[in-house]
Design a protein around this nucleic acid. Sequence first.
DNA 1: TTGAAAGCGATACCAT
DNA 2: ATGGTATCGCTTTCAA
Lengths: 345, 345
Amino acid sequence: MMKATIYDVAREAGVSIAAVSQVINGKGKISEERRAAIVSVMEKLNYKPSVIAAALTGKKTYTLGLLVPDISNPFFAEIARAVEDQGSLHGYSIVICSTDNRDERGENYLSLLEQKSVDGIIIGTGMGGKDMLEKLLAKSVPIAAIAREMSGYDVETVVINDYEGGRLAARHLIELGHTRMAVLAESAKIPSSQERIRGFRDELAAAGLELPPEAVRASERDLVKDGKRNAAALLDSAERPTALFCCNDLLAIGALQGAKELGLRVPEDVSVVGFDNTILASVTDPALTTIAQPTDKLGQLAVDLILGKYEAEPPKQTGASKQRIVLEPALIVRQSTSQPAGRSN
Amino acid sequence: MMKATIYDVAREAGVSIAAVSQVINGKGKISEERRAAIVSVMEKLNYKPSVIAAALTGKKTYTLGLLVPDISNPFFAEIARAVEDQGSLHGYSIVICSTDNRDERGENYLSLLEQKSVDGIIIGTGMGGKDMLEKLLAKSVPIAAIAREMSGYDVETVVINDYEGGRLAARHLIELGHTRMAVLAESAKIPSSQERIRGFRDELAAAGLELPPEAVRASERDLVKDGKRNAAALLDSAERPTALFCCNDLLAIGALQGAKELGLRVPEDVSVVGFDNTILASVTDPALTTIAQPTDKLGQLAVDLILGKYEAEPPKQTGASKQRIVLEPALIVRQSTSQPAGRSN
DNA sequence: TTGAAAGCGATACCAT
DNA sequence: ATGGTATCGCTTTCAA
């Protein structure tokens, strides 16, 4: 059985393909009877218009590309799910592209997506190679940044307030009475990570506390493993910190493991704060206190932005051609944080 | 800047579009000089052939659909990553489709994928509504089942030996000395879950142990939460089991939480075995003993099967038109299992 | 209302 | 070796 085409339907219904096209798209003028007849033939033939053919005539492909570092990282899997759901609401499919933060992979995917004429690209990964990106922008392919700032480019953006996220973590720890803290960071190339640290540091400073540079350790590849190593290094000193702020949950898990290895209890001996509030945070023991990103909202807005379905509530500021939405993070307190040892109740 | 077309290239190079097509596809006969000239024009114009247009003439779309229950479930996210990587190797993109195990969502996605003329569909989720599926099969759209049996359909299949997985879990527990065990299952509709239980039960029987029906509890929606509740119910009795076999890691996490809530220690008071060996299993405390599925291999083979790039080593059995690959699971021992309390060393 | 016909961008067959 | 052209399935004027 071959796939039925618009010609088959037209022939079978005894009308022109133009008529069939009308009913497919619900435009133009057709008598009710004709329309009904055509519809019934379409069903009988199990006819489905080809998106491919339609796209060629200038219509949409109803496909969006989503670039993330790694779809198997729970945070991005959650983002992907949110993007998928919102896209699906508007009839769009999502093509996943895991870049591993490698520039050439990002470039390749971008090029591929262009050839496939996707209707938009949502980027949640760093883009080192800017070439491809600029070409796409020049060809006016809609692009949106999600959860990751794309500084220097005029693209639709939806991110969280990473700076505030860092402050939230700091404030929580300060309120618990911690005074000596350290942080586990992602690669220095990742702006959001830097912002989180800046917020953390500023809030500490406001409380008269300091975060020396050597108290910040960056991890590159295997976040859990590197986090563990870095945490161990940080904690294995006489003047060890009583709390660790980790720039994502994976690092926090590494911290948990590092502490355990040193025979330190969490949170009694050392408090740990994560970031992202992925499923991982709720599953560790102790469960992680972490900063939540509203992944659903992020995905939703990214899709709406790219589809032009989102209109700023306050009349768009003149000048800025692209929108920029900043969502607020939230502190989720679980069991990995407490007062530092030796501090009375 | 508009996207350049084959006509632009032809005009700019002073040749026919046929010639350009030749060099794009590397076929036909063209003199070296001409080819070089055309290539350089293509670069200059930043020309990329449209996959859409090519697909319309009967070529491939280089897109594969992947149906899973939920991409934000770590197991399927890992599967997706494997499929993506292997697809990418052959120039294919992957469209993700999370069905939530809802039949109508599955049907919708199937229909959408058909309209988009994907070159194949990999299914890792139950398909209740068989309608769409049969239509696709009739239209000879390549379909492969991954990690999930699609009984009754003649499709390429790559699964693990779930039965053996269940036996591995049982054997491990039996060797540790457990005699009273229970299991946390997924919905009864999921065949792989049933197979795991069957294997578990058979192995128990072989050791003269029994697994009464009431010792098997199924969870439906929120696996962690349901697992917790079911585990608590199972463990809150005088004759409580000393070990729990859970049909996936999410359920095992629920079991961990349920045990904790009752003040039971894992593994001292109760051993827990998971299934899938997702990242979650390595992150819990205690880390989960679990049965590993080779997700990379599964994804790789599913793609190869659907692309027809996989040839059975032993000359294909006559009769069976589709291949069926069964991979072996492996026991990963971590810290959630030990001898039952009261048993001497 | 309805239908004929001109594209959309690429492929492939067939002359030249 | 090279180019003309029909074709893929659908959308969209433009006449009738």
